[in-house]
């Protein structure tokens, strides 16, 4: 590679960066690097890369509650499959409710919701509403004319397979569009709706692994009202400057439409 140290090859440099070089060869490479700043910078770059890559994936070396199911495949192997089983059960329950003459069953009779740990959700929802709902030209990133794309995109960012954008037309609200926004420091989704009078409301979805069990909760700040709930790892919040009664209907409708 150069005259003074012809024996140092690129392979040696990789081995040096990866800590795979035998002790005896190390001094030779170090001497070479001392004389060749370009190569030294390259090797330093590789080492930074290595450290970054290790750091990036270190957190994944963990066991999970579902591990046992993975190695005992008589049980449903995949948590996602379990999820769809639960979803089916929820649909069945809803169907029962519908048959028994109540089109939207009261929330408290639904399968038990999970308890909230994140008290930050309503505040974040409120802020998002205040910031975005007042935007005239750029309230959302993706408008309702690209609803399918919006659902796929945000579903992917939130790791929700088959995310559906809730349809609130029955309550007089049509979709304006949606955007990606941080919720609990992670990718979250916001959907915005508008009624005939131009009154807007927002629906926020965020994922948080620490989320636990809540029923519907209610938060209000000045004129802005928020209904929020947590279902599994997903937190939802519906925010608007509309009557609490209407907002609750919206929340119930969303709860019904989001996959459980």
């Amino acid at each position: 590679m150069n005259e003074t140290n012809p024996a140092v090859t690129e392979a040696d440099l990789h081995a040096y960066a990866d800590g795979q070089l035998p002790e005896a060869a190390r001094a030779r490479v170090e001497a070479y690097l001392a004389e060749n700043p370009d190569e030294a910078a390259m090797v330093a770059g590789w080492r930074t890369q290595n450290a970054g890559i290790k750091n990036l994936f270190a957190g994944y070396e963990k066991s999970r509650d579902t591990d046992l199911q993975l190695v005992t495949p008589a049980e449903p192997a995949s948590p996602w499959k379990m999820r769809s089983a639960l979803a089916a059960a929820a649909v069945a329950l809803f169907a029962l409710g519908a048959v028994s003459d109540r089109f939207i069953p009261p929330l408290f009779e639904r399968p038990p919701l999970q308890l909230a740990q994140s008290e930050t959700l309503p505040k974040q929802a409120e802020t998002a509403f205040l910031v975005y709902a007042s935007e005239v030209r750029h309230p959302v990133e993706v408008f309702a004319n690209e609803e399918a794309h919006l659902a796929t995109w945000l579903g992917k960012r939130l790791a929700i397979p088959d995310l559906k954008v809730p349809d609130l037309k029955s309550l007089g609200f049509h979709l304006v569009g949606g955007r990606l926004l941080p919720v609990d420091n992670r990718p979250g989704a916001m959907f915005m709706y508008e009624d005939q009078g131009g009154e807007r409301l927002t629906v926020i979805v965020g994922r948080n692994k620490e989320n636990r069990t809540t029923s519907f909760r209610f938060a209000s700040a000045k004129d802005v009202e928020t209904f929020y709930w947590i279902d599994g790892e997903l937190g939802y919040a519906v925010t608007g400057e509309i009557s609490r009664d209407m907002l609750r209907k919206v929340a119930e409708e969303c709860y019904r439409q989001f996959p459980s």
């Binding site: 750091n55 960012r157 994922r207």
Partner: peptide
């Protein structure tokens, strides 16, 4: 998929 698939990080400790 590239850009869309960068997910939440499972590692809260190594905060780079």
């Amino acid at each position: 998929v590239e850009l869309d698939a960068a997910e939440e990080m499972a590692d809260p400790e190594g905060q780079a």
